[in-house]
Simulated scan of single mutants.
Amino acid sequence: MRLEDLDVFRAVHETGNFQRAALRCGLSQSAVTKVVRKLEDEFGVQLMERGGRSLALTPAGRTLYQRAMELSELTAATRRDMAGEMAALRGAIRLGVVPALLGSVAAPVLADRLPGPHAVQLLVSVKHSAELVRMLEEGKLDLAVCFGVQHLPPDVLRTRVGPQRYRLVVRAGHPFAASIPSLEQLSKSRWLLPTSDVTLRTEVERMFADAGFGALDVRVETDTSATLLIPLLRRSDLITVLPEQAFQPLASEGLAALDVDLHALTGEVTVYHRRKTPSVGLLMALKHRLEAQARSNALTGPHGRHSAKESM
């Protein structure tokens, strides 16, 4: 029995016939048939009922299918672990970070590590939180510094390191820039928000839903950081939500933060890593340094002390 044979067996069951399984596996139909017969001969049991227009698994076939699924997941996890070990062996650490935390958390820590005695190569990916956690789950990253996500994969651990404040941001000449808009006025405005799988989007919509308002008019939806769409924000009346760290460098560049209480949107800066991290002390040292930097920012940065008190 080979793992490839189990993949073919799974394909026959999941596609419903030998022909579609052959297309999926890149084999001839006769080769797929031979694989299934080989498995049946090896175990001495019939795995599939071959009658009618569709194939059905026998009780033994269902058992083998379940084991094949488990082995497939174990194989994928093993490949992810080995990819991490290979990167560690090369002296590389694969770090993911959201744009808002690149300058305030990641950059100071990485700059301190570069002159050190250890020849460490840093591979940095800058994406939004949900994508970074997915990459971590797939073994493409060792660490991720970002914000909270809706779904935490079972193989990923998180350490919450500090509160996160958000601001509603518009162009400097926006009608709301010189006033204090109500939630009702905001609910009727046009928005630039992340895609629906991003936690921040969910929290924004929940804030308005809890206040009794309907769905927001999201005119622009993005799967990357809203900071990359700042030129569009400056030329329109769109409203977006930015982390405090992302807004501060932009405050003098034609943007304004609305005077609105966003206590309901206070989130957390979080460091994520996989349960089975590569066997290298440098990785954990970097993790602890990133956590310390994020905690320091939460206490000493803009509105830091106020945020920490509110989140208690």
Rank of each mutant, 00 (worst) to 15 (best):
A87S: 15
A11S: 13
L64D: 02
S72M: 03
L101G: 02
E221D: 04
V271F: 02
V124R: 03
S28K: 14
H118G: 03
A298V: 00
D155H: 10
L228K: 15
A226R: 03
S311G: 01
L3D: 09
T63I: 13
K188P: 02
R113K: 12
D81R: 15
F213V: 10
L110F: 00
V204A: 13
L23E: 14
E253Y: 10
L299D: 11
A100D: 11
A68T: 13
V97A: 00
C25D: 07
T277M: 15
H273I: 06
F18R: 06
A144Y: 11
M207N: 10
P108R: 05
S179I: 10
R289S: 15
T63W: 07
A298S: 13
L255R: 06
A211Y: 09
E253K: 15
F247R: 03
K34N: 13
V8D: 04
M1C: 00
A144T: 13
V12E: 05
T75N: 14
M86S: 12
A31M: 10
A22I: 02
T300K: 00
R171V: 01
L122E: 02
H13C: 08
T240Q: 07
L228A: 15
A209E: 10
P117L: 12
S236I: 03
V97I: 01
G139F: 03
K34E: 12
L136I: 00
A257Q: 05
V271N: 03
